Simulated assay, not measured.
Amino acid sequence: MDSKIAKAIKLKNQPIAVYRTDIKEDNALQFKEGVWGCVIAMLNAASKGKTAIFSQETTACMGGRAGLGF
């Protein structure tokens, strides 16, 4: 999905949305449980068209956990 706002202000990446759901997409990126990973890296991948999933069990980054509401 292309964003008219992103085009108008000439963003390099697309805006992303973060929302809560119980549905997990099969091909989505997700950290492995108990393994640390940077939430910002996943959000960057999302801005390039990937789907990223976060859960309390797979988000070890304390700052990321706080920012995502875990």
Rank of each mutant, 00 (worst) to 15 (best):
M42C: 08
S55P: 01
K32S: 13
T59I: 04
E25F: 07
F54H: 10
N13K: 13
D26P: 02
K50M: 12
G49Y: 08
I40P: 00
C61V: 05
G67L: 05
K10A: 11
A45R: 14
G64Y: 00
N13V: 11
I16S: 07
K4Q: 14
M62D: 10
G37F: 10
Y19I: 06
L68H: 07
G63I: 03
K50W: 12
V18T: 08
I23A: 00
K50R: 15
L29Y: 06
C61P: 01
A66I: 13
A6E: 05
S3P: 04
G67R: 03
L68E: 10
Q56F: 12
K12N: 13
T59M: 07
V35M: 10
D2A: 08
G69Y: 07
N27T: 07
E25V: 12
G67Q: 03
G49D: 06
I23V: 13
K24M: 08
N27H: 10
K48N: 14
E25K: 03
E25S: 07
G34I: 02
A46N: 00
G49P: 06
I9T: 09
G63C: 08
G34H: 06
T21R: 07
K12D: 14
F31N: 12
Y19C: 00
C61K: 03
K32F: 08
K48L: 12
T59D: 03
E33G: 02
L29D: 05
G37V: 09
A46V: 08
S3V: 11
S3D: 06
L11V: 07
L11Y: 09
S47L: 01
A6F: 02
L68G: 10
D26T: 09
I53K: 03
A60T: 14
G64L: 05
C38L: 14
